[in-house]
């Protein structure tokens, strides 16, 4: 284990009811949601896991979640789940009011539960400027280490997201990209390729398509280069797809450099510098995990428990040599989250 850090980069937060959020909305919006057909987003099934909201797994109870944390952890990055769903909502203002209230709920009720908790600022991405304002509102909170969103049907490298990236960089926050659960179901969220899947199983299997497109866009649109301080963390997409995509991007870049002359790094170099991938403990337990990981370079992977959606902790990820495991749990996470690195450095 790294002596400085052992980071869970993906620990989800669930909000049980609107009453938890009402204190963080205007009276008007709270009333509007109470009296409309608004329903708290119900989180869909995850592969192989039974979700019980508020269970001892810690979905909605911050103190239960704190008690269940692996005692070796030095930090756990909280990612509220329900705001991710809002990429499928038509009401962009409602999505922001909801996400903003969740952010305040996390700050007020989760952070006091354990000093190891850090949080990602949830932002819907319908309106990049409004999202940036929310990042600025909370960006200097000492426990804020990231921004989190689920992508809409605009490629991640495009200008639509630039205000979000600029705001994240201004506060040294990483950007976590995570599925929202509505992909392939409704218009608005990022689309899946081909004709589109029809069942939840197909959607789960094919979610990496969105990350592939997003990663390619971040590289070839020059977005990583435009924001050299940007750190992007793909969470919930796995990483097994990434080596082949990065390899292919490098191969194509050689012949198509004139099409993207703004790239002064190869795609592999750009990804190595600025992108990290969360190992999904639920699905990446196979021995091949470490072979695939080696193709991305030693710094590419970080670990996320996916609590409360995944049953296994870090010990379920077997194999790998100790330096690789240690780096994934510690140094790589600190590279991904500059604010966390600053805090660890100060503490040391």
């Amino acid at each position: 284990m790294s002596p400085d850090a052992f980071v869970d980069c993906e620990h989800h937060v669930i909000v049980e009811g609107l009453s938890d959020l009402a204190p963080y909305m205007t009276d008007g919006w709270a009333e509007r949601l109470r009296t409309s057909e608004f329903q708290m987003p119900q989180l869909g099934p995850h592969p192989g896991v039974e979700l019980e909201s508020g269970s001892e797994q810690g979905g909605a109870d911050p103190y239960a979640a704190a008690a269940a944390l692996d005692e070796r952890l030095t930090h756990a990055v909280l990612i509220p789940s329900q705001p991710l769903v809002s990429s499928g909502w038509l009401g962009h203002r409602m999505a922001m009011v909801f996400s903003s209230a969740v952010n305040d709920h996390v700050v007020a009720t989760w952070l006091p539960a354990d000093p190891r908790f850090r949080f990602a600022i949830s932002v819907p991405v319908h309106d990049g400027q409004a999202a940036a304002e929310e990042i600025h509102r909370l960006g200097e909170h000492p426990a804020a280490v990231a921004v989190c969103f689920s992508p809409m049907a605009v490629n991640l490298g495009q200008r639509h997201y630039h205000p979000i990236y600029a705001a994240a960089c201004e506060h040294d926050l990483a950007v976590i990209v995570h599925p929202g659960g509505s992909e392939g179901k409704v218009v608005g969220p990022a689309r899946l390729g081909g004709v589109g899947p029809r069942t939840p199983e197909e959607i789960f299997c094919l979610l990496p398509q969105i990350a592939m497109t997003g990663l390619s866009s971040l590289v070839f649109d020059g977005t990583l280069q435009r924001f050299p301080g940007l750190r992007v963390v793909f969470a919930g997409f796995g990483f097994g797809w990434a080596p082949s995509v990065v390899w292919r991007m490098d191969a194509e870049y050689r012949g198509l450099r004139v099409e993207v002359p703004w790239l002064t790094q190869t795609p592999f170099e750009a990804v190595t510098d600025q992108v990290r991938f969360v190992v999904d403990a639920a699905v990446e337990r196979e021995p091949g995990t470490w072979t695939l990981a080696s193709m991305l370079g030693a710094g590419a992977l970080v670990w996320g428990s996916d609590t409360p959606f995944a049953g296994g902790g870090i010990d379920s990820l077997t194999g790998g040599d100790e330096p690789s495991r240690s780096r994934m749990l510690g140094a790589n996470a600190l590279d991904a989250f500059p604010r966390l690195r600053a805090q660890v450095s100060v503490a040391v």
């Binding site: 020059g222 977005t223 280069q225 435009r226 450099r257 004139v258 002359p261 703004w262």
Partner: peptide, 8 residues
């Protein structure tokens, strides 16, 4: 050839 530039 195309030289390094701002994106697009």
């Amino acid at each position: 050839t195309m030289v390094a530039s701002a994106p697009f």
